[in-house]
Structures are given as C-alpha cells and as structure tokens.
Computed example of a mutant assay.
Amino acid sequence: MASPLRVLIHGGGIGGLTLATLLARRGHTVEVAEVRDELDALGVGIIQPSNALHVMREAGLLDACLAAGFEWEILTIADPAGTPRAEIPQPRMGDAPPANGIPRPALAALLADGARAAGAVIRFGATIDALTDDGDGVDVTLTDGSAGRWDLVVGFDGIGSPLRTRLYGDRHTPEYTGFANWRVTVPRLPQVEGVVMCMAGQEAKALLTPITDDLMYLGVVFAEDEDFRPGADTAHEELAKRLSMFSGPVAEALASVTDPASVVYTRISQVTVEDPWHVGRVVLAGDAAHASTPHLAQGAAMAVEDALVLADSLRDEDTVPAALTAWEARRRPRALWVQSLSRAVLKQETGLPTTPEEDALLKIGIPGAAHVLVQPY
C-alpha cells in the first residue's frame, strides 16, 4: 500500500510490540492498547530460536536481544544425572544466530523501547470498549475514554483474547491439555552453556536454559488436575518432590530455590481458531489465533513471525483486506504445523496415545522441526 495506515494493536505482549515496531519503522501510525498498567512480564526466561531472531533483526532489535540474553548453539540431551548423551547443534536462519535465551522482563522492556523509538504509542490500562467496522475503517473506543478511527485492528491479546470473544463468542475457548508448566529462575551453572534437556524416561523432562551470564531457568511439564494450584508457601517443595528422580545439575538448581514465590506455575492450554483469523479489518494473531503447547519453544516465535509477515503483506498488497487474506494464507499452515507437532510431542513424552497423523509428525521430532523452521516461509 502506498499510503501510511492507522493501526491499533490490542495487546502489548511479544507479538504486539514487535508488530508495532515493524509498522512504525515503515511509516505507519501505530497505537498499542495494553490492559495492564505496566509490562510486568513474569520473571522467567524465554528461548528465541533462530527464526525468532531473524524477525528481531528485521525489527532492528537483534543486538539488544543478544546483549540482554545468552546466545547459545548446542542443545544437550542428558540423563537424569545430567550426563550428556547427545549434543545437537541448532540451525541458523540466514545470518541470524542459532538461539538466544533471554529473561522475559528484559525482552518486554526492549520491545517497548523499540516500539516507542520507532514512533508507536503505548496506552496502558486500556482495552477495547466498543468497536464498529464499516468496511472502510474501524471506529474504536477504549476503556480509558480515548476514541479513534483505524484502518486495521490487530488482536495480539493472548490465549484468553477478548477480541476473539468479541468476534466469535465462545466458539474458540482455550482447551486445557491436562498438563502444566513449572518454571523458576536460578543461578546459571557453568556447565549450562546452552539448553540442557535432562530426560528421565516418560516420568519427566527437565530443561535448563541459560538466559544471562548469571541466570538460567529450570522448566518442567507435569500432568496436573485442572483446578490444582501450588501452595503459596510450599510451591518450591512441591516442585522438588516432582523432580526427585533427578540428580546432578537439576538437583543443584533446585537446591537454590528457597522462595516459593519464585516458582511460576502455568496451566498449558491450546486454542485453534478454525474460522478465518480476520473479519473485515479486524485480525487475530499469535496466541489469540493459534496458541500451542511449549514443546518446540516456538510460541513466541510464531507470534513474531505473524508480525513480520503481516507487516510485509501490508507493504505488498493493494488493500487491507487483500493483505489479511495473503497473510493468513502464509501463516495458517505453518502455525498449525507447530501446534500439531508440539501437542504430539507432549502426548509422546507423557505416554498418551497418538494418532497416525501425529506419529508421522513425531518422525520429524524436535531436532528435525528446528531445521524445518529455519527455512523460508
């Protein structure tokens, strides 16, 4: 499109702020409506695989990500004692690094700084109160009383997306998988120079992920009742019991966890919007459209890829509707492939029965998926 657009992004998470940066750098007028009063990201880390770092390069944020995090290349598969059994180099997408671990708060801060530096406006404590799409534009009133007319509204508002509910009612509510993620930030052990995946058969898989020179996080997935929550005073002890089959670096990491409040517990849910991801000039992206389990470490990567492809489609197509159609045609197969393989890995690792289609995906596996996802998309 030759003319700059006015774009409202609903949600100031990783995908929303990446899109804000990309669009504002290309001359569009961008505002982000974020319901939180600040970007208070949970104090654990995140993996940025090479395809995510490729997007950060396009957004001008790669150097900031690498400076704030811990760049790594080797995925180590280890036994419960931490003894390495395989070392797997991670592939690169173009000239992007193979992988980076980074604290979530640091990533949120640098994304917000990048969006503002590009010219985007971030409105905190604001969400959509009223929305009318007349085909030529979208009139929106926010809960902070501000109002405007936009060429495009993008819902990067997470797995519980209010914008998705506004578009589709309760047709696409999150589905609890029966599993939950336990994570805690601990001092980095010297031997953890990349992700170390300690396997205890089908009992448990513990990941140690470096996120700075001084810090790493321990993450593990277990089957949990939907209404289970760790005790406020005992979460660290409950996590230690679940990981009692591990020694070596996992046990050493656990020994440093003395504050139950440092343990972050998140139920793993999935969303697949089977309807079109856009209605008129309103579009869903990231977890709002295709939330997956974390087994490929690709959830945030899929969100930032959504952002880059949407920015490119708005550049390449003549109209907003044409851009949204082209964007979804590129994004849906790739995002749903990641979702399907992630869920298959979860089922395989926990002993649940898999379908023939999932068995075919599992032949690719996690290492194979990394090579698929660094190909052009």
Rank of each mutant, 00 (worst) to 15 (best):
L239A: 09
A235M: 06
G231V: 08
A240K: 06
T212L: 08
R242P: 01
I211A: 02
E224K: 06
Q202M: 14
M197C: 14
A235K: 01
V221A: 11
D227L: 10
P230Y: 14
H236V: 05
M216A: 05
D233W: 15
V221W: 14
L208M: 05
G219Y: 11
P210F: 09
D227C: 09
P210D: 11
A223H: 08
A200R: 05
F228W: 15
P190K: 07
A235I: 03
E237L: 14
E224L: 09
V220S: 02
L218K: 02
T212C: 08
Q191L: 13
G231T: 04
G219F: 11
R242D: 02
A232R: 10
L215Y: 13
P210M: 09
C198R: 06
L189Y: 14
T234I: 01
P230G: 00
R229D: 14
A206M: 04
Q202F: 13
T185L: 12
F222N: 05
A204N: 04
E224N: 04
A235N: 00
R229A: 12
E237M: 08
E238G: 06
R242N: 10
P210K: 03
V186S: 00
T212V: 09
A200H: 10
T185C: 06
V195Y: 15
D213F: 10
M197Q: 14
D227P: 01
T212A: 12
R242A: 07
A200E: 10
A240H: 08
E238C: 02
Q202I: 15
K241S: 15
E238S: 10
P187F: 09
R188D: 04
E237N: 09
C198G: 07
G219M: 13
G194S: 04
L208P: 07
G201C: 12
P187D: 12
P210T: 04
A200Y: 12
D233Q: 10
G201R: 06
G194L: 07
L239D: 08
A240Q: 06
H236I: 03
Y217K: 02
D233C: 08
T212M: 00
I211P: 01
L189K: 05
I211E: 07
C198Q: 11
Y217F: 14
